[in-house]
């Protein structure tokens, strides 16, 4: 069964069609990669799926239910978690506080302005366990602005995992990473993806080859090809689209 579906999705920006008639089916418990040359509309499509952009036309269905008009926090509460490409964190919180904030989001504690922040200690154990999973446990008390880039990306994953989502939307999780960090991130996504559904926007074809069950290739806002990595890799249209492009 498809967990996430789009039906003729279109996004126009002032006369420029960034996403053109895209119909996707993301099957449950698969890792599905969205790839394509620069400017193919991957990021726009990703932002439509995560509801940070409203489509100009078309529908988005999650578990068979229409979510086209919902806001980001509403789909977040239905079990969709997204990561950000540009590492997007809260500069003044510690690493532990970040994860606690993600765990707290499922409760109504956030409205309690009359209660001491000590009630957040209840999330400490779970937060530490999640940090352990992404290899940040020893840095739990550090403030985030002091973290190196690779570890900020790991924290980004920790925030996604803390939501215990059914669907993970990952925006270029390995962008700008060194080889070792990429290896660790692949392992992490594979573990996190077990029993879950993952949609991945990714430039690094090595990562796609390792992880993706299905690959959708976009070009100029439209779906050019779809299938397993091996199938799309050999597709002549895909090769042509990528000709002259570096594969990072």
């Amino acid at each position: 069964m498809a967990l996430l579906e789009t039906d003729s999705l279109i996004k126009d920006f002032r006369g420029f069609r960034a996403v053109n008639d895209v119909s996707l089916r993301i099957e449950e418990e698969t890792i599905h990669a969205l790839v394509g040359p620069n400017g193919a509309g991957k990021t726009t499509l990703f932002n439509l799926l995560s509801k940070f952009l409203q489509p100009s036309a078309g529908r988005i269905l999650y578990r068979g239910e229409e979510i086209t008009a919902l806001r980001p926090e509403q789909i977040a509460r239905r079990g969709v978690a997204r990561s950000f490409q540009i590492t997007s964190l809260f500069e003044q919180l510690t690493i532990l506080e970040h994860v606690a904030l993600a765990l707290q989001a499922d409760t109504a504690l956030g409205y309690r302005f009359w209660q001491s922040e000590r009630v957040l200690d209840q999330f400490r154990e779970r937060a530490l366990a999640i940090l352990d999973e992404v290899g940040l446990r020893d840095l739990a008390e550090r403030e985030v602005h002091a973290l190196p880039y690779g570890q900020k990306r790991s924290l980004e994953m920790a925030l996604v995992l803390a939501r215990d989502p059914a669907l993970l939307l990952l925006d270029e999780p390995t962008a700008g990473m060194g080889r070792e960090d990429v290896e660790r991130m692949i392992a992490l996504i594979r573990r996190a993806g077990t029993g879950r559904t993952v949609v991945l926007v990714e430039h690094n074809m090595g990562v796609v080859a390792e992880l993706a069950d299905r690959v959708t290739v976009l070009q100029r806002g439209s779906v050019l090809a779809e299938g397993t990595y091996a199938a799309v890799r050999d597709d002549p249209q895909v090769i042509e689209a990528y000709l002259g492009q570096t594969h990072a």
Partner: peptide, 28 residues
Amino acid sequence: RAVHSPFGHVLVAIRDNEARAQALGYPT
């Protein structure tokens, strides 16, 4: 008390990064 409450944490988070707070599920 409001600043040092669970609410205060969310408020500061929204100030620093509203999109991030939304993605975590907070109706900002």
